[in-house]
């Protein structure tokens, strides 16, 4: 059991616990904070995959920007009267959870019954592809058009968000 495996299992356990808290906690604020914990530990999981750039972007964009947006909106709107996971339609929700667990068992069965994985194809290859340099090079050459398109999309989304949040509907 080397350090890498220990780190992976610790981060995985934290993200599993946090994702359960997101869904099951009654207060939206606690859900949002658990989601931040989940995203941060996912960044750690990305690091065990040698995806450095993605890990940093995960912390900055997800755990930083998006979750701040969520927390602002939670603070802006009235706190709901308590709506836990089993609030109302209880048989239906228990059925949902059962079906979800069955689907999870099926997914695990499929993953297990697949061809046994080989481990990393030599660490050096994986270490190389995760760097900022390599990803930036790809974005500026082979993926230039999608990169520009995503910039346009973000511009349109920010304008749309401002317009939607500013005025009242009729």
């Amino acid at each position: 059991m080397n350090l890498e495996s220990v780190l992976f299992y610790v981060f995985a356990a934290v993200s599993v616990a946090a994702s359960i808290f997101v869904v099951s906690s009654k207060s939206p604020v606690i859900s949002a904070l658990s989601l931040i914990v989940n995203f941060a530990s996912l960044a750690g999981v990305y690091l065990t995959l040698y995806a450095q750039f993605i890990a940093v972007v995960q912390v900055i964009v997800y755990a930083g920007a998006i979750m701040v947006l969520f927390l602002f909106v939670i603070m802006l709107i009235k706190p709901e009267s308590d709506l836990g996971i089993l609030h109302g339609h209880k048989p239906f929700k228990l059925l949902t959870i059962t079906v979800g667990l069955i689907v999870l068992a099926q997914l695990i069965f499929i993953i297990v019954s697949g061809k046994p994985s080989t481990t990393l194809t030599g660490n050096s290859a994986s270490v190389e592809i995760g760097t900022v340099e390599k990803i930036g090079w790809e974005l500026m050459t082979n993926y230039l058009l999608p990169f520009e398109a995503i910039g346009f999309l973000l511009l349109a989304a920010s304008i749309g968000a401002m317009v939607l949040a500013k005025k009242k509907f009729e």
Partner: peptide, 11 residues
């Protein structure tokens, strides 16, 4: 992406 050594997944 990391296991196949292919950068497309990360993009």
């Amino acid at each position: 992406s990391s296991y196949l050594g292919n950068i497309t997944g990360q993009l």
